[in-house]
């Protein structure tokens, strides 16, 4: 397996998949990412990341049912695997650990 460290964008995509629960397919992930991060998520990039995550074993996928909406093409739904959940939790813990040792944190000016 390739390195299990999560890149920033990988982590975001993984979180989005987890958040979308049963509706996590590429276009929905793009939309969700755009909604939460405010930056445009390119389809090609998201696909590449999804492919990589699957290679790393952090997500798994299955094909859905065909509908009229996508020119008759089926969607590929993603789901976070156990390894994915572990990776997410660990990265969250790392962050929280770091946050905890910051003595005081003052946001000056506007965010």
């Amino acid at each position: 397996m390739k390195g299990t460290n999560l890149g920033e964008f990988e982590e975001l995509v993984l979180l989005t998949i987890a958040a979308l629960i049963n509706d996590a397919y590429s276009v929905a992930i793009c939309d969700e990412l755009e909604k939460y991060t405010g930056r445009a998520a390119k389809l090609g990039v998201v696909h590449a990341v999804l492919n990589r995550l699957e290679e790393k074993g952090l997500v798994k996928s299955r094909m859905g049912e065909a509908t009229q909406a996508r020119g008759g093409k089926r969607k590929r739904y993603y789901e976070v695997t156990h390894a994915g959940k572990v990776a997410l939790t660990r990265s969250k813990e790392v962050r929280e650990a770091l946050w905890r040792i910051i003595p005081g944190f003052n946001l000056e000016g506007s965010v």
Partner: peptide, 15 residues
Amino acid sequence: DLLEDLEGDLNEYFE
């Protein structure tokens, strides 16, 4: 094995 999904995405965006 990737084609259907990719094409579907393109179609969805196109619509």
